[in-house]
Amino acid sequence: MVGRPKWWAAHTPRGPHPLNIAVILLAAGASVRLGQPKQLLPYQGKSLLRHAAQTACDAHCGEVFVVLGAYSKFLEPELVSLPVRVIYAEDWPEGMAASLRAGIHAIANCDAVLVMLCDQPLVTKEHLQALLAEFQLGVIVASNYGEAIGPPCVFDRAYFPELLALTGDSGARGLLKKHPCRTVAFPGGRVDVDTLTDWQALAAPTPPG
């Protein structure tokens, strides 16, 4: 890989080869609160989905898997020309857990996974790389919003069975509460897009001064 990030060389705990880390981008939801696919909302000249996928690719964290479910036929064109693999969560109506399970099944042979959401537009490639810089085998690394921790997160493969056991729409937050976590500051994690008001606030120009 050309231009490997600084964290790469440090992750060689299993002989001469660095860790095999995958990225799972969750984008399977139906955006019920918004009333239209949030994945297609424009942000900085791209859809939220393409913006997130491009960020994951630019970070060079590992192979990028995009989990789709609802609206998949409308979302696939947003990923054209990006070096990602599309995974389909057949049980997507169940909630986020179904997407996580589909992603983990797809990357079962990896040493760790970085999980990110398509509705956190302030995630940067630098933040993703900072999460991996904190990663060590056996740990969870989460983003610290100040009053809470959450995605993007990195999970060692030791937690894959627990991720596969998740059900419903709670995602992996239960694991973050159950297990000790390393964290990386990410104030922008407070910004996500669940409603039209959220998107309008995101799209509004910043007042001068």
Rank of each mutant, 00 (worst) to 15 (best):
R85D: 01
A185I: 03
Q136H: 04
M116W: 07
V86G: 00
Y43M: 12
A27L: 06
Y88A: 10
Q36W: 15
W8Y: 14
L202H: 13
Q54L: 12
G189H: 12
E94S: 10
V193N: 13
C110T: 13
S170A: 06
P207H: 00
V80N: 12
T183N: 06
L163A: 08
N109L: 00
F155Y: 12
G150Y: 13
K38Y: 09
L49H: 06
L40N: 08
P93Q: 10
G95N: 01
L82P: 04
P18M: 01
A204F: 04
T124F: 02
A165E: 09
R50N: 09
L68S: 01
K46I: 08
Q54A: 15
Q54W: 13
H17Y: 05
L128K: 08
C57E: 14
D111L: 06
K178N: 06
C110S: 07
E94A: 12
T124C: 05
P152F: 14
P208V: 00
V184L: 11
A165C: 05
C118K: 13
V123F: 04
D58R: 15
I104R: 02
A52L: 12
L48R: 08
I87G: 00
T183L: 03
D169F: 07
A112L: 02
D198W: 00
L26I: 08
L117M: 04
I149A: 03
P205C: 00
G189W: 10
G188A: 07
A203R: 04
Q120T: 14
K177V: 02
S81L: 09
P207N: 00
T12Y: 05
L19H: 02
L100Y: 11
P180V: 01
G168T: 00
A106I: 00
G45C: 03
A204W: 00
A185T: 05
K38C: 14
H179V: 03
Q129R: 15
A112Y: 09
A165L: 02
I24H: 09
C118P: 03
L176Y: 07
G171T: 02
R4G: 10
D194H: 12
E94K: 11
Q44W: 13
A70L: 06
V139K: 10
V32W: 15
S81F: 11
L163R: 09
A185C: 03
R50M: 12
L48A: 08
D192F: 15
V80G: 09
A130E: 11
L164C: 00
S81G: 13
T55P: 10
V67P: 02
T55C: 15
K73V: 11
P152H: 08
G171D: 03
P37A: 13
Y43S: 08
L34M: 11
G29N: 09
I21W: 05
A28D: 04
A201H: 01
L132C: 09
Q129N: 10
F74V: 13
A204L: 02
A10S: 07
H105M: 12
L164W: 02
P77Y: 14
A89I: 00
R14Q: 01
P42H: 14
V64C: 01
N144L: 08
C181I: 07
P37E: 14
S81P: 08
R173G: 07
E126T: 15
A30D: 15
S31D: 13
L41M: 11
A97D: 01
S31W: 10
Q200R: 05
L75A: 03
K73H: 14
I104M: 04
A27Y: 09
P77A: 14
V141D: 03
Y145L: 06
V115C: 00
P207Y: 00
A102L: 01
G95F: 01
A22Y: 11
